[in-house]
């Protein structure tokens, strides 16, 4: 299995960051970057990375199932992550999440039928002073309101 040139370069960079014999240390970021490119961690991706790092596949499975950002299920092109932890919650994050569910017509962990959006309630994303905050893929959106969310979703709907 081949990945894009950029990802292959990233893999090399990640692996070469560690002393010889310690290649396994690159596993967690490799999985995350591979997921960013492929969309989710397919059995092929896991197999490939396991092979490259010479880690048994089942040990990679153990790692994949541990980290909350890693997923074996496909997500939407735009993965809407709404933080509802205390700071954001105090400023209306739970209502924001409810609003997102309504607007998107999906529950957390689901993907819209067109594959464009998926929704996840996430734990603190480090934007406590500027909440409620959400992340769309890796992009932060601070001081969110239901109205701002609607506008954002509309833009993303139109995006190519």
């Amino acid at each position: 299995m081949r990945f894009s040139e950029q990802l292959e370069a990233k893999f090399n960079q990640l692996i070469s960051a560690f002393p010889p014999g310690r290649e396994r240390a690159a596993l967690v970021p490799m999985l995350l970057y591979a997921q960013d490119e492929v969309g989710h961690l397919t059995p092929e991706v896991i197999q490939e990375i396991a092979g490259r790092l010479r880690v048994p596949v089942h040990e990679v499975d153990e790692v994949v199932s541990y980290y909350s950002m890693l997923t074996r299920k496909p997500r939407g092109r735009y993965h809407i992550q709404i933080c509802t932890n205390i700071s954001c919650m105090l400023l209306g994050a739970e209502q924001l999440l409810e609003h997102a569910k309504q607007r998107l017509g999906i529950d957390c962990g689901e993907v819209t039928p067109d594959g464009r959006f998926s929704l996840e309630e996430v734990e603190c994303i480090g934007a406590c002073c500027w909440g409620p905050a959400i992340q769309v893929n890796y992009d932060y959106h601070h001081w969110m309101t239901p109205e701002k969310l609607d506008r954002l979703l509309e833009e993303l709907r139109k995006a190519q």
Binding site: A25, A26, L27, V28, P29, V55, V63, L70
Partner: peptide
């Protein structure tokens, strides 16, 4: 080096496990 979603990895020994490519 990027983590992948785990509060526990802020605990220093769990962070090291994660940095070694294991469960945090």
């Amino acid at each position: 080096h990027s983590g992948a979603g785990s509060y526990e990895c802020g605990e220093e020994s769990a962070l090291l496990e994660s940095l070694e490519g294991k469960r945090g």
